[in-house]
Simulated scan of single mutants.
Amino acid sequence: MQHRMLHYGRLALGWIREQDAKLILAALMTASSMFLFIEIADEVVERDTQTLDEKIIMALREPNDLSNPIGPIWVEEAVRDLSALGSHTVLTLFVGFVLAFLILIKRRKAALFVMGAAAGGALLSHWLKIFFARPRPDIVSHATHIMTYSFPSGHSMLSAIVYLTLGALMTELVSRKRLKSYFLISAMFISFLVGLSRIYLGVHYPSDVMAGWCAGLFWAALITLIARLNALRSKN
Rank of each mutant, 00 (worst) to 15 (best):
M1L: 12
G195M: 01
S197T: 08
F132P: 01
S175W: 09
A12Q: 03
V75Y: 12
T49Q: 00
G116R: 08
L128R: 01
A27G: 09
I56P: 02
W219M: 05
L164K: 02
K177V: 14
H155K: 10
V95G: 00
L232A: 13
F97Y: 13
V95E: 03
G120T: 02
P137H: 00
D65G: 09
L23A: 13
A187F: 02
S67M: 09
L11A: 06
L124P: 10
F101I: 07
L99E: 00
R228T: 14
D42E: 04
A117N: 00
V45A: 08
G120K: 03
Q2D: 10
F113W: 03
A221C: 11
K129S: 05
E77V: 14
L158Y: 00
V44S: 01
M147Q: 05
T51D: 12
I185D: 09
S150P: 08
R198W: 03
R107E: 11
L6N: 10
L128F: 05
Y205F: 14
I70P: 00
T171H: 07
S67W: 07
T51V: 04
M29C: 15
L93N: 12
A84Q: 13
L128M: 07
M210V: 01
S125A: 15
H155E: 11
L193Y: 04
E54H: 08
L93P: 04
R198F: 03
V98I: 09
L28N: 05
L193V: 08
S153A: 15
S207F: 00
V44H: 01
G86C: 03
P206S: 05
A220L: 06
G202H: 14
S186G: 14
R61N: 15
A122H: 15
A84W: 06
T144V: 13
Q50F: 12
T49P: 01
Q2A: 15
L124W: 05
W127C: 04
C214V: 04
R134V: 02
A211W: 01
W213S: 02
R134A: 04
P135N: 09
L36D: 08
S32W: 12
V45H: 08
T165R: 12
G195K: 00
M188L: 13
T49H: 01
H155G: 02
L229P: 06
L179M: 10
D81W: 05
S159C: 03
R61W: 08
R4Y: 14
L99R: 06
G96C: 13
I226T: 10
E62L: 15
R47M: 07
A221G: 13
L222M: 10
R134Y: 02
R136T: 03
N236S: 09
M157A: 14
F151I: 05
F132G: 00
L91S: 05
D65I: 15
Y163F: 14
L102Y: 06
A59F: 15
K55L: 04
L225G: 13
Y8N: 10
I190M: 13
K22H: 14
P72C: 12
T89R: 08
F192G: 03
R4T: 11
V209G: 07
W127I: 05
S191P: 05
I161E: 02
F189D: 14
A168V: 13
L102T: 06
D65P: 10
Q2N: 07
T144N: 04
R136H: 03
P63D: 03
T89Y: 14
K180N: 10
